[in-house]
Amino acid sequence: MTRLTLRPDKQTLGSFCVLPDTRFGEAELGERTILLLRGHPFTQISWVINSVVILILVLIFDIIWGQSLSIRAYFWVNALAVIAVGAYAWYNFLLWYYTVGFVTNRRVIDIDYYGVGKRRLIQAPIAKVADVTAKTSGYFGQVFDFGVVNVQTEGYIQNITFTNVPNPDRAIAIIEATAAGEISTAPPTP
């Protein structure tokens, strides 16, 4: 097998980062993050559209009925709408940002952040990776190149699934090369 040479690289709005600065908090001594995966930004489009549409509706409400409302009612309608949309957008951004997959030179780690008070962390030693498969399905998955990467492990260690990650084929190549110890690093391109 030929060695895979990697350079620090950040693609698709930080959802596919090779040799990133971001690292797992409980990393062991000498452990280095090879790959960081998040959901493809396209999969987040629904909450972005929802937020924008609600803000536009509030704006339309202001234009049509704003002048007939008292200042107090006008203030509360706008304040509550903006706060609700802001909280909704920020919450969804955090769900996306903190649901990550790490591939290090020692482990494969999947951190799923489900929201307030709920998160899940699964990890498996990289040496126990038996097989890596990817599935790209759906129209948008084909167009924007994102899909599910499934890391199967030996024995009783739980399999790890990264959902909606960009460049699934490249992710497979990097995970397999890391598991085989066939990774070498190069300085970033200027």
């Binding site: 971001t22 955090l94 903190y98």
Partner: peptide, 27 residues
């Protein structure tokens, strides 16, 4: 909203210890 914001702040504090990133301070 106040309770929700406190909860979110606490969650981010704990998540920052697990996922160490440059944007942690900004978040």
């Amino acid at each position: 909203y106040v309770f929700y914001s406190i909860l979110m702040l606490g969650q981010i504090g704990s998540l920052r210890k697990i996922i160490i990133t440059d944007q942690g301070d900004l978040i």
